[in-house]
Structures are given as structure tokens and as C-alpha cells.
Design a binder for these strands. Sequence first.
DNA 1: GCCAACGTTGGC
DNA 2: GCCAACGTTGGC
Length: 157
Amino acid sequence: MRYWLVKSEPEAYSWQQLLADGRTCWDGVRNYQARNHLRCMQLRDQVLFYHSQGPRQVVGIAEVVRSSYADPSAANPDAAAEKWSAVDLRPLSSLEQPVSLALIRSTPALREIALVRQARLSVMPLSSAEFACIVALGAGNRIRTDDLQLGKLSLYR
DNA sequence: GCCAACGTTGGC
DNA sequence: GCCAACGTTGGC
């Protein structure tokens, strides 16, 4: 099981829209590094959903329900078939408390997170500890760094 | 809305 | 293959 984070501008596609749709094709990624991450996604991998406009925050947890395939939004499907990829996602749950970028930045356990280190990447891998940390923060838990280091954080499984 | 960071393109 | 120019993204 791997963990990921995807960004979306709510105006383009919001978490609320994903909840309403029940499932969506995550297409339109036009960055090679992000695409490569999409291609590594496996069925049932867990995906944090981040809003990159308005309040910048992680708002929900989604799940991969179809692993990567040729991006149907690519202009020329024949030529683009090998070039760009998409996956399907479905929402699992909303975070009780969205986890803001500011909180992520100020949480020592999340210092190495790609969201902070590589701001422009729109699809990125998370370690299981990073994922668990954000999910715990989103449930309103206060995170103790030593809990993470000792691997005690099993609030999310 | 501005600006810095970064990815891509194209000329050589 | 390098690098400058340019476009885009994202944080504030």
C-alpha cells in the first residue's frame, strides 16, 4: 500500500465535486514527474486531496480505484497514449479538520514532505508516517513527534 | 496581483 | 547538449 497526495484548484475540480461524483478520472496531468507518480499508483492506494487555491489545505482522503491508463483528455489519443496517464479516484472520507499548508509547514514530522520541498509538483508520494500524521491532524489529534518516530501512530490503518 | 521557482522550448 | 527565454504554478 502506497500513499500519495494530489493537488487540485477547487475551481477546476474540488473535493466537494469528488464527493458529489463518487468517482472521477484524474487526468490532465502534464508534468512528467507527476505523471510518473500516477503510473506508480496501485489499486487501493490512499490519496490525500489538497486544495491549492483559496484555503490551501488537505481536505480529504481518496482511494485509487483504477490504476494508470492512457489519459483520455490527451488531444491526440494515439500519439498521447504512451505519453500521459490518468487514474481513477473515489472519495473515502473528508477530514474533520482540514489540514492547512501552514500547519503542515510548522509540523516537524512533515518537514521533508514533497508538498513543501517541491511546491509545484501536483502528484507526489508520501511516506506512511507523513500520511498518518496528516490524517491524525485532520482528525483533530495533536501530533507528538516522538510518537511518529517510535511508530506509535496507528490512528489510521 | 506580484513575484520567485521551476519546467519546457528552441536556437545555436 | 547547453543555456537563455519564456510560460506556468503556487505562495503570499
